[in-house]
Design a protein around this nucleic acid. Structure first.
Lengths: 135, 135
DNA sequence: ACAAACAAGACAAATTTAAACCTATTTATC
DNA sequence: GATAAATAGGTTTAAATTTGTCTTGTTTGT
């Protein structure tokens, strides 16, 4: 219940990894995947998602790699989730009306949507910086 | 991102359906699936989960069916989620240490666990009764 | 006895996720 | 300019999960 994908885990680890480096340090996918122990190719896909979402910036060519596009203070778990898994949609009807057979007569949708927003608010309130301090 | 399974949706609908009936009314899976428009066989599986979790009570034989085991006030979205999809585990390492390659050296697990608990608290704070009032 | 209904395991189909493969492009260095 | 390191991204394969169906059994009111 409520679990995130492995790709999300990879991406989150990578962002935390980059956040621990000097602000503008460029790190290769190879280095990250070796340090973390994940599939290099698959982590590369996650990094591409993060790049397209404006969370990471890529540097091509030799000595290339990735760095964070902005301060860890300004990147949230919600941002990473949206970048890799798309918008939060607790129920199918939230993703697209018509996806649920009884959307018209359903009386509890609106409350579930509220719940969805509250969950996302929790994720949006968790910055990468807050993940850096070990507790 | 963050989506629940179809089985969960079916189960949630069924619980809300039962909650709208008189307290001890027994309803068949057939009636519920026809009213709601879901696969009868599959909804039956969801009902079995709800029964095992002590959320619904089954009545066998002719005129049998299901009724809620307790007041809608005392059934939460978290209960239904646990009954159908199991415990909430945002990350693999929360489900079982050793499921993640870097659990030992991972510094942000604990914070993610906190986040997991907070999300579950939101679900646990949403009773079926609160889903009944249309807004 | 019969029919309606739940119980539950086994199976099959469909979908999603994870991973691998391959080709192209970019760019620093020699 | 050639080369090698790296990202870009599409295609395909493999694995896992979800969804749905089928079948058999049990319970119980009529």
């Amino acid at each position: 219940m409520l679990k995130v994908s492995r790709k999300f885990e990879y991406g989150l680890h990578a962002v935390v990894f980059l956040a621990r480096k000097e602000p503008q340090a460029v790190v290769t996918v190879k280095e990250m995947s070796q340090d973390i122990g994940f599939s290099q190719e698959f982590l590369a896909k996650a990094m591409q998602n993060l790049k397209r979402a404006g969370i990471a910036v890529s540097v091509q060519g030799v000595n290339g790699g990735y760095r964070l596009a902005r301060s860890p203070d300004d990147i949230t778990v919600s941002d990473i989730g949206r970048a890799i898994e798309g918008e939060p949609h607790l129920m199918r009807c939230s993703a697209e009306s018509g996806k649920c057979e009884i959307a018209e007569t359903c009386t509890h949708r609106s409350y579930m949507f509220t719940l969805e927003r509250r969950i996302d608010s929790l994720l949006a309130g968790t910055t990468v910086t807050s993940l850096l301090v070990s507790r």
